[in-house]
Simulated assay, not measured.
Amino acid sequence: MRVQRAKLLLDGTTLSMTDIAARAGFASLRRFNAVFVEVYGRPPSEIRRLRYRPV
């Protein structure tokens, strides 16, 4: 559930990765990144970069 909440925050906000990790309930940014990669196969920064391409 934490990683799903993080994905929603990642897609719907411009919060920093640190803020997203904290709001989703992760104690550390390192753990957030590791779990995110396990679930989605890519780090959160890559997901955000691909989502918000300048036109």
Rank of each mutant, 00 (worst) to 15 (best):
A24E: 02
V55L: 11
V37Y: 07
A6F: 02
T14C: 09
L9G: 05
A22M: 06
T18D: 12
R51C: 00
V37W: 04
S45C: 09
S16V: 04
V3P: 00
G41N: 11
I20N: 00
Y40F: 15
S28E: 01
N33K: 10
E46D: 10
F36K: 02
M17P: 03
V37M: 06
A22L: 10
V37T: 06
A27I: 03
A27C: 05
V55Y: 08
P54S: 11
R23A: 13
R2M: 11
D11A: 13
R49P: 00
I20C: 03
F26E: 01
A6R: 02
L29A: 07
K7P: 04
D11K: 09
G41M: 11
G41D: 08
E38A: 07
R30E: 12
R23N: 12
R48K: 14
M1E: 13
T18W: 01
G12V: 08
L15Q: 10
D11S: 10
A21E: 03
D19G: 05
V39S: 05
A24Y: 06
A27V: 07
D11E: 15
V55S: 14
S28P: 01
L8Q: 13
L10R: 00
T18F: 03
V39Q: 11
Y40N: 02
A34T: 11
L50H: 07
G25A: 01
T13C: 09
L50T: 09
A27K: 12
P54Q: 11
D11M: 13
R53A: 11
E38L: 08
R30H: 12
T13R: 08
K7E: 12
R30A: 14
N33V: 05
T18M: 09
T13Y: 01
R48A: 13
R53W: 02
A21K: 00
R2G: 09
V35H: 05
T18R: 15
A34W: 08
G12H: 14
T13S: 12
R49I: 00
L9A: 03
S45V: 06
Y40I: 02
F32L: 04
L15C: 12
I20F: 04
S28K: 05
L9D: 05
S45F: 07
P54K: 10
Y40A: 02
F26R: 01
V55G: 12
Q4N: 15
E46A: 10
R23W: 07
S28V: 03
G25F: 03
T13H: 07
A34E: 15
R5A: 13
T14N: 14
A22H: 06
R30K: 12
V37Q: 07
E46H: 07
R30Q: 08
D19C: 10
R51H: 07
G12T: 15
K7M: 15
L10K: 02
R5F: 08
R48E: 06
E46P: 01
L9E: 05
R5T: 14
I47V: 15
E38S: 11
L10M: 06
I47Y: 09
R5N: 10
R53T: 07
A22D: 02
R30C: 05
M17C: 05
R53E: 14
R42H: 11
D19T: 13
R42D: 10
I47M: 08
F26M: 03
T14H: 13
L50K: 15
V3I: 14
A24L: 10
Y40W: 06
S16F: 02
L15T: 00
P54Y: 08
S16I: 04
D11P: 00
R48S: 03
